[in-house]
Every structure is written in structure tokens, then in C-alpha cells.
Measured scan of single mutants.
Amino acid sequence: VTTYKLVINGKTLKGETTTKAVDAETAEKAFKQYANDNGVDGVWTYDDATKTFTVTEMV
């Protein structure tokens, strides 16, 4: 189990959260659900070296 981080660069919501998951795919599903629940829709990137997902909403 690995800890993954999500950085949110939203128009109205900004911040970070973490989740523990067995792999990046599982973490991504959890983060996308979290973003969807919070009304964040944007471009996703993932950095495997730092285990960090970033979602950026276009203005």
C-alpha cells in the first residue's frame, strides 16, 4: 500500500489531499471521484516519481 497525493488547482477549490491505495490506478479512481464530488473538472497529470496526481481546471 502506497500513499498518493492529489494537488487540486481548481477555479474555486485549491488544495491537497492524500489517499492510500494498492496502485496508482486505484488512487486515480478515488481522486477522480473526490474531484467529481467537489465539482472539479480539469486536466489530469501524474508524476510517478513523487506519486502525485494534479488536476488543473482551465479558466
Rank of each mutant, 00 (worst) to 15 (best):
D47W: 03
A27W: 01
V22H: 09
V1F: 13
T50G: 04
A30L: 15
E25A: 13
T45V: 10
Q33M: 12
D47H: 06
T54G: 03
A30T: 14
Q33K: 13
D47T: 05
V59D: 11
T26A: 11
K14P: 06
T50L: 07
T26S: 11
D37E: 12
W44C: 02
N38Q: 14
T3H: 06
V7C: 06
I8F: 09
T17C: 12
A24F: 14
G42K: 01
N36L: 13
T3C: 10
K5L: 07
K20D: 15
V55K: 01
N9T: 08
T12W: 11
G39M: 07
D48K: 09
A35R: 01
A30M: 12
T2N: 12
F53Y: 06
D41R: 14
D37V: 13
Y34D: 02
N36G: 09
A21R: 03
D37Y: 08
T18Y: 14
A27L: 01
T56I: 09
T45K: 06
V7P: 00
G42F: 03
T17Y: 15
T12Y: 14
K20Y: 15
K51R: 13
V22M: 10
Y34V: 04
V40Q: 03
T3W: 12
T19S: 06
F53L: 01
A49R: 08
T3Q: 09
T56F: 07
Y46K: 01
N38K: 15
V43Q: 09
K51T: 03
V1C: 14
V1T: 15
W44D: 00
V59K: 09
T56P: 01
T45Q: 09
D41S: 15
D48F: 08
F53K: 00
N9K: 11
T17R: 13
T26Y: 06
E57T: 08
G42V: 02
L13N: 07
K20F: 15
K20W: 15
E28C: 12
K20T: 15
E25T: 11
D37P: 02
K11A: 08
A27R: 00
T2V: 13
D37R: 11
G39S: 07
A30P: 02
T45E: 10
T3K: 11
A30H: 13
W44Y: 02
K29C: 05
T56V: 08
T45M: 11
N9L: 14
V7E: 04
E16I: 10
Y46L: 02
K14G: 06
T2F: 15
T3R: 05
Q33H: 07
V22D: 10
G39L: 06
A24N: 06
L13V: 12
T19K: 05
T17F: 14
Q33N: 08
T18A: 07
T18R: 05
F31T: 00
M58Y: 13
D37S: 11
T18P: 02
N38R: 14
D23T: 05
T19P: 01
K11P: 09
K51D: 03
L13H: 10
V43S: 08
E16A: 08
E16T: 14
Q33C: 06
K5Q: 05
N9R: 12
D41K: 13
D23H: 04
D23V: 03
G10M: 15
V55N: 01
V59C: 13
A35V: 08
D47K: 03
T50F: 05
E25F: 15
G15T: 15
A35K: 01
F53S: 00
N38D: 03
M58E: 10
E25W: 11
T12P: 04
V55M: 04
A21C: 06
G42E: 01
F31H: 01
Y4M: 01
